[in-house]
Design a binder for these strands. Structure first.
Lengths: 151, 151
DNA sequence: GCTTGACCTTCCAACGATGGGAAGGCGCAG
DNA sequence: CTGCGCCTTCCCATCGTTGGAAGGTCAAGC
C-alpha cells in the first residue's frame, strides 16, 4: 500500500503520516525501488490506533506513550488506565474553564439590550478600570495559551 | 510608564505587548528619546481590555473586533452581543466535543482492571481492526486541530 | 566618572499539529 | 510517448506565546 491508500484507510492525511514518521511517532516506512513509502497491514493498524487516540484528544506525545504501552505486552494495565484517567481529568479541567468563560459571557450578555443603542455592559465591563468580580480570574495564566482558545 | 510597568499592571508579558503592537491589535506606543516605549493610562486601559477578553477565550481577531466596537461610540449594542453570543456557542460546541471524548475514555477505563495484569480494553479497543461504535466519529476532522487538544 | 545590574531594544527560532504549494520523479493507461 | 495521478522532498504559513542572543539605556552605588 502506498501512502495515499493508507491515508484514505485511516483518515489521516498523507502529510501528517509523513510528519508522524519524521517526528518518530511511527517507524519509517519501508521504501519501494521508486522511493515510494510502502505500508503493511501492521502499519495500518498502528495508524488506526493513532487516529483514534487523536480523536480522543490525546497529544502526539501521549499517543507516543500509549503506543509504547500498546506494543509492550508485559505492561500493567494500570499504566494505561493512569494515562487515560489523567487525560479525563485534563478534559474536565478544560471544560470547567470553558464553562466559566461561557457563564461570564452569558451574564454580561443578559444585561445587554442587543438593539441599536450603543451602550453595552459587555464592553464597559471589559474596559472598566476596576477589577471585575464576575470575570474569571485565570490564575494560571501561564498555562492557558493560544491553542486553548476556541475558534 | 515603560513596557515592564504595563506588563506588570496588566498581566500581559512585555513580549506579547510588543507582538500585539506589531500585529496591529494595539496602536504603536510613543517612544522616549532612548527608544523605549512609553505608555499612557489610556494604553493601560486598552491593554486591560485585551487581557480580560483574552481570559474569556476570545481570539486576537475577535478582540480586535471588540476593540473597534469599544472605541466606536455609535455602534449598536447588538453587534457586541452577537459576537459574545457567537463565542458562547463556540464554547458550548467545544465543551460538547470534550465531553464526548471524556465519556468514551471513562467508558473504556471502566472496563480496565487497572492492576498489574497486562490486558487492557482501552488499548485493545484503540488498536482493534474493527471500527468501534463507542468512539466519537469526528466527522469534521478538518476542523479539529492541534490547538484543540488538551494538554 | 565608572561599574553593575535591571531594564529596554530588535531579530530570530521554537513550540504543536496541520495545510498549502512548488519542483521534480514514478507508474500506468491510452 | 504523452498525460494524468500519484509520489517525493523542501519550504512557508498558521496561532499565540515563550525563549534567547546581541546590544543600548538608565539609575544607583562606589
Amino acid at each position: 500500500m502506498n501512502i495515499g491508500d493508507i491515508a484514505k484507510a485511516t483518515g489521516i492525511s498523507a502529510k501528517m503520516i509523513r510528519y508522524y514518521e519524521e517526528t518518530g511517532l511511527i517507524r519509517p516506512a519501508t521504501r519501494a525501488l521508486s522511493g515510494y513509502r510502502v505500508y503493511s497491514d501492521n502499519d495500518l493498524q498502528t495508524l488506526r490506533f493513532v487516529r483514534r487516540a487523536r480523536d480522543l484528544g490525546f497529544t502526539v506525545k501521549q499517543i507516543d506513550d500509549l503506543l509504547t504501552l500498546w506494543r509492550d505486552r508485559t505492561r500493567a494495565s494500570a499504566s494505561v488506565k493512569e494515562i487515560a484517567l489523567g487525560h479525563v481529568a485534563a478534559l474536565a479541567k478544560k471544560m470547567q474553564e470553558l464553562k466559566e468563560m461561557s457563564d461570564t459571557l452569558l451574564h454580561l450578555a443578559s444585561h445587554c439590550h442587543g438593539d441599536t443603542r450603543p451602550d453595552c455592559p459587555i464592553l464597559t465591563t471589559l474596559g472598566s478600570t476596576e477589577a471585575v468580580a464576575a470575570l474569571p480570574r485565570t490564575r494560571n495564566r501561564s498555562k492557558t495559551r493560544a491553542f486553548d482558545r476556541v475558534r
